[in-house]
Design a protein around this nucleic acid. Sequence first.
DNA 1: AACTCAAGCAACCGCAATTTT
DNA 2: GAAAATTGCGGTTGCTTGAGT
Length: 327
Amino acid sequence: MGHRCCSKQKIKRGLWSPEEDEKLLRYINTHGHKSWSSVPKFAGLQRCGKSCRLRWINYLRPDLKRGSFTAEEEQIIIDIHRILGNRWAQIAKHLPGRTDNEVKNFWNSCIKKKLISQGLDPQTHTLLSSHRRSSACTISNNIHQNSNSIFIMSSHIPNAPFETTCQTFSTLPKPPPNIVQTPSSIVSSEFQTLSTILSDDGEPLQHLPYELLMENATNICSPTYMNPSAVELCNDDNNVNWVSRLNVHDFSAQTLEEGAQVLQVQQEKGKTFDDKGSDVREANKGNLETSVSFESSNFDLGFLESVLTSEFISHDLNCMDELAWNF
DNA sequence: AACTCAAGCAACCGCAATTTT
DNA sequence: GAAAATTGCGGTTGCTTGAGT
């Protein structure tokens, strides 16, 4: 069975010969590819347009990176896959010069097996049932140690496009300690904002593109890496303007509504504010009602509400409960 | 040397989404 | 607005290669 687009033509299939590559390359370099369906006809190829497109994207494109994946790329794939799942095209966008097909193949042939050998389910990134018992004790200890954790969300970018919807936070993943993250390599060029997951002492545990964190927060739950203390949004170019910090004390022991009552808004690293004229830093000193403080800032109130009215804490507790019961 | 098996990879397939007619 | 064409994506297949026996 062939493609519908090539049913009328005599179509060659299988591996591409160097001559075919040459023809396709020469044609696209001179004419571009406005319509893939017409490319084979004008390039003199006995292929269907779909096949030409694939060959170009996966092999002939000049900006492709050759060679095996680096450890850093591998970690990026794992981190983003933990959030997005098998959305290879999306994952590949964060790896310049890599194609979705390449990422997918690498995942299926290498990473998947590596995760399984580490006792992790490659789809959910959670512990496989056969490994649960042995690690439950560690997780339980973490819960205890972090029972006074604070949850911090920070934003500092005037007019930042907070387009978040009613996504929910769950527990956030922490990378293995031996992995060094490189934020600039995974932030998308169109959206120069990173979220940084912080430990209790404010040390960054993991960086993720902001949109990945926000759009997919429901999928983040990972019993293996629990209880970050904070999330901070920061600009990739280090042009920090202001930070609004929300502290939810001891959130793991409170209901969501109670957590919202103890929100503190603090300003850090503050230098400039939005052009609405309100001095957010002054306004946010001390403990304030969140609605007041955020009305006067450029922090998107809808964004805040989506977090506060989400199932963040209940998710978290459910997850912990489940783990506790497993233990 | 011949065979088997698994890993890695390129390409295909079908479907869905988007664009064009 | 509907139909057709095109594009994009993820799952899958099948070929090549190299290691092990």
